[in-house]
Design a protein around this nucleic acid. Sequence first.
RNA 1: AGGGUUGUCGCCAAGCGGUAAGGCACAGGGUUUUGAUCCCUGCAUUCCAAGGUUCGAAUCCUUGCAGCCCUGCCA
Length: 528
Amino acid sequence: MDNITNNFITDFIKEDLGENLNSLITRFPPEPNGHLHIGHAKSIILNGELAKHFGGKFNMRFDDTNPSKESVEFVNSILEDVKWLGYDYGDRLFYASNYFETFYECALNLINKGLAFVCDLTGEQVHEYRGTFTEPGKNSPFRERSIEENLKLFKEMKEGIYKDGEKTLRAKIDMAHPNIVMRDPVIYRIAHIHHHNTSDNWCIYPMYDYAHPLEDAIENITHSLCSLEFENNRPLYNWFIEHAWIGESKPRQIEFGKLSISKSILGKRHLNKLVSEKKVQGFADPRLLTLKGLRSRGYTPEIIKTFVNEVGISKADGTVEIELLEHHARDILKKETKSLMAVLDPLKVVITNYEGEEELELENSSEAELGSRKVLFTKEIYIEASDFMENPPKKFFRLAPGVEVRLKGAYAIVCEEIIKDSSGKITELRCTYDPQTKSGSGFNARKIKGVLHWVSEKYAVKKTVNLIDYLLNEDGSLNENSIVKKEALIEKEITAEDERVQFMRHGYFYKNEEEELNLIVSLKSSFK
RNA sequence: AGGGUUGUCGCCAAGCGGUAAGGCACAGGGUUUUGAUCCCUGCAUUCCAAGGUUCGAAUCCUUGCAGCCCUGCCA
């Protein structure tokens, strides 16, 4: 995790905390209005690893200040995903909505200082008064209400005597400020809505810009990490800490570039659209880079963490190629995954000079110490249809008429005869084998280049396999064939202990809840 | 009267005045009973551009240019 624990953010942390690095407190503050994806994972990992690295603390906090979009379902989904990723927040689980009382006190504080006022302007008028990028805004006609009147009005807002949208509480800053965020921002709005945590106790809800710095301050967050789009909001963040906050803590906001990945979709809006238009099966669709999708596809938390660390943290906004994610998936899976033979497009081969059957021993992995297994060899087997060519090009190392190839872990065979149906389609191959080429016998009289995976017709197990491709094409359009179901023939049943296996020349697969096998990532040798 | 912010290889990304790390991708070669893995090798005389300061600049200064974010009672 060296990129995560050594970057421009850690420079700030070291500068700010000096000797007291273990006083670092970070937080992951999602709004419970959607499901987490790999971009959120970057934030969770950054905050979580930083706290771990410096011996500090990591807070899980729901930024639930807008009940109209939020629900307990999302809360539970998020908690589940964060734990799955491996960040156990223990008892450090917080809700911004539990701070509503403190937010209210801080608002009173602001009003008493003459730095906030109750405004009667409609949403539309607020917009008009705000001005534009190049022109200053103008003051609200309600801006000069007395402190007493503001106090009275704000209390009435809280008591619920006004309707939604009728009044707001606004900070009194500067309507001519070049940063539009600073032009008397609304800090409380009226919304008579049920809240998933505070029920109907409140009908005024604080806005993000106001609530967030206070949430951080209340929790003694030292470094509040967020994405680049909040750079404009930082002066406001600091303004509220300086003027509204009634405590001592001084959290610091630092922004970093969020993650985007090629050939995939991460935006909440786009994700929702895919789901609502039924382009995907749901938020756990294995093609999605949601944490649920990644998990159902078979990715492990370790893969995601390694990938996120490799991408690094910076302020430049770019798009990481999905190939980097795939690289780490292969790199990690190869160390712990057994490889089996599986045929996706079977072509029958009859070994004419072979009778009976025998037990062969195959290594479970050529890349890790994972033991060996027994495989039964018989006269009639299946090979991959693409492993045979009647008229092979020069660099084709596999089976062709008169060419000798090795059956993985078994014997060398030569193709003697091709059998076709009336339409000319190849339906079967007749081959002969050479007994002295048996695997492990030390045979080296001839160099045999090609090695084919195979399954015995008699012992093969049929299993549904989901071949998963990129969600998007190169040009950004939806890939219509991003998932293809196939019946694969596998050399043996896949047991519960091997929930992830490698199929030679195809890729790494994961046994999902439907007992089907999802392609996690294809091998570089795979050919589609 | 606009403001903020970023520009280092096809993609990420180190670098913080002493002469361009690393990973992915790609291309060669070797090993191999998975065309995988593994192992070598190559891949920015140049850092958005142009000037300037300096013995020395991706790093400092000046001026441009380009991208991204900001005018929700969203976060």
